[in-house]
């Protein structure tokens, strides 16, 4: 009887090894452990014919074998289920290269992005960001900036007039120098981004409307070295750490001394290319120490206060940064253009 059990166990274990699916496993369970016709059950049914003395031993052994087989079947079941899950998942395979679902991504205009980046740099240096009116008076746009009536500098900036000689579209962001200083006492540090207008013929590099950022810092100790330091920090942050800055003497009616600001061309790295007209330098704006007459115009005593002002063209900088060769793209608003930023 014990032999029968041993043989049965060996057979059952062997059979279990070849079970591959849940269905086969059920079949196996039925065959060996089934309550009705299971082989083990059948053997146990014959237990009544066994002498009572052996019955207990054999009964124990049969139970052990039953438990053992059930344990092994459980293990087998886990393996099979795992395998079956894997093949089910494999059947759910997708093509990961299919396009994504639409999650509309938006775009900020490159002009806005450039303005935010530039102003952000100066914000870190403690500058306020202020905006002023685009429709201005002659006083703020010209006279207070040391550009009286009949000053030849007025010819350099063709003006759109609303009321001739009185009201105009600002030709520069500089009138805000006056507005800011009129409204606050030193120390002053501010940048003013905004639209400006010139009554000029448009071409690949000129628009009748474009964006400028004005900077102003006035206190009792700021010098042209601070100006250069601020612009160097700005240029490095915007164009990369290796960018160099150059000052060239220039003329603006509202600064003295005045300087044109060049940075090393970031297209050729200063070696010379078409963008920089083979000079290695690209002009980014004008700057200088606030003219004493301008300080007097806002009741700042030039013997006590000093400071600098600068102005940069946003389109120009955006064109340099992104390698855009045509200024009119900014106002065309073609989605194929906007999408690139």
């Amino acid at each position: 009887m014990l032999d029968l059990l041993r043989i049965l166990k060996d057979r059952a274990v062997k059979a279990l090894h070849s079970v591959e699916t849940s269905a086969e496993l059920a079949q196996w369970q039925n065959t060996y452990l089934g309550r009705q016709d299971g082989e083990l059950t059948k053997i146990l049914r014959g237990l009544k014919d066994v002498p009572a003395t052996e019955r207990k031993t054999i009964g124990q052994r049969a139970n052990e074998i039953k438990n053992e087989l059930e344990e092994q079947a459980e293990l087998r079941k886990k393996t099979i289920e795992e395998r079956e899950l894997i093949s089910a998942l494999i059947a759910e395979r997708i093509d990961v290269t299919l396009p994504a679902r639409t999650l509309n991504s938006g775009y900020m205009h490159p002009i806005s992005q450039t303005i935010y980046e530039i102003c952000g740099i100066f914000q870190k240096l403690g500058f306020h960001i202020i905006e002023g009116p685009e429709v201005e008076t002659d006083y703020y746009n010209f006279q207070a900036l040391n550009i009286p009536q009949d000053h030849p500098a007025r010819d350099m900036q063709d003006t759109f007039w609303v009321e001739p000689g009185q009201i105009l579209l600002r030709t520069q962001t500089s009138p805000n120098q006056i507005r800011i200083m009129e409204q606050t006492k030193p120390p002053v540090r501010a940048v003013v981004p905004g639209k400006v207008y010139r009554n000029e013929a448009t071409d690949a590099t000129h628009e009748a409307m474009f964006h400028q950022i004005e900077g102003l810092a006035v206190d009792s100790s700021t010098t042209m070295r601070d100006l250069r330091g601020a612009l160097e920090a700005f240029a490095r942050e915007l164009f990369g750490p290796h960018t160099k800055t150059r000052f060239r003497p220039s003329y603006f009616p509202f600064t003295e001394p005045s300087a044109e600001v060049d940075v090393t061309c970031n297209v050729c790295g200063g070696k010379g290319c078409r963008v920089c007209k083979f000079s290695g330098w690209v002009e980014i704006g004008g700057s200088g120490m606030v003219h004493p007459q301008v300080l007097r115009n806002v009741q700042y005593d030039p013997a006590i206060y000093r400071g600098y002002a600068f102005g940069v063209g946003v389109e120009r900088i955006a064109m340099m940064r992104y390698g855009i060769n045509e200024i009119r793209l900014f106002s065309q608003n073609d989605l194929r253009f906007l999408r690139q930023f």
Partner: peptide
């Protein structure tokens, strides 16, 4: 100030070296 510019031009603007802007800053905006 106009004379200062003439002198600065003669001495060369390269002599205006940059320094990290110090000086009084206004109250934060």
């Amino acid at each position: 100030a106009d004379l200062v510019e003439e002198i600065a031009r003669e001495l060369g603007y390269d002599r205006i070296t940059g320094k990290y802007p110090t000086g009084d800053a206004p109250e934060p905006q």
